[in-house]
Simulated scan of single mutants.
Amino acid sequence: MSEIEIIATIFGIICVVLTIRQHIACWPAGLVQVFLYIFVFYQAKLYADMVLHVIYVLLSIYGWYHWSMNKSGTQSSGVSTEGKFMYMYVFVCLISSFILGFLLTRYTDASFPYPDSFIMSGSLIAQWLMSRKKLESWIFWIITDVVAVYVYWYKELYWTTGLYIVFLFLAIMGLVEWRKDYYQTKSVLIK
């Protein structure tokens, strides 16, 4: 446990709370978190998570840009993806987890290569969906957070474990809130 991990944890919580509220300030708060976690995961030899956070930097900048198209600073309700795309996202998540896990097992001293790879794959898909304002992003976050809690607890990253437990509950809240907002907006558009 380090000061960097504690600060990253605090910014992570701020980021997700702002995301649930659909406020654009979630993106700069998230950038602070992801920069700090690059160092935390490098020290823990969770290389897929480290690379994930490097990619998060780019996705966060993209998400910040995409959400900034709305001049009010907040976004209206999430947009649902088509079912066929969800099957594709699940397939890509599983295949990429297996391939990356195999590569990490073969060529590195990575700890928990397959679960770490799943965390990376699931998180990338969730982050992409989140940046595009897709309701289903929360489902990917929930599943990924469950795996992350186990891995981080085992690696004795207790602040990070706590953060991902909070993330899990916040993701459930996010799904409920965005779903409610989605159906309210959809019913208004139908009238």
Rank of each mutant, 00 (worst) to 15 (best):
T160K: 02
V149L: 12
T185P: 04
C93L: 14
I13Q: 00
I6A: 06
Y89G: 02
R179A: 12
I7H: 00
V16I: 13
G63W: 00
S117G: 06
V147G: 08
S60M: 12
I125T: 07
S77W: 04
A29I: 01
Y89W: 14
F41K: 03
K180M: 11
I4M: 09
F140C: 09
W67E: 03
Y152E: 11
I142F: 10
I119Y: 03
L103T: 05
Y65S: 10
T81M: 11
V188K: 15
Y107A: 11
I172L: 09
I99C: 11
P115H: 12
Y158K: 04
S137C: 15
A25K: 06
Y87A: 04
Y158F: 14
L31F: 12
L18C: 12
F98E: 05
S123E: 06
T19I: 09
L94Q: 06
F169H: 10
V51S: 09
F112Y: 15
V16F: 00
G101Y: 00
H53L: 08
L94E: 05
V90H: 01
V151N: 09
V188T: 13
T9W: 00
L135C: 09
S68N: 12
I165C: 12
G12L: 02
D116S: 14
H23V: 05
V147D: 04
F118C: 11
K191Y: 11
E177T: 13
I190Q: 15
W128C: 10
I172Q: 01
D109P: 04
S68E: 07
M50P: 04
G73I: 13
Y107V: 07
V54N: 05
F39K: 12
V16C: 01
Y107T: 09
T19F: 07
F91M: 05
S111R: 15
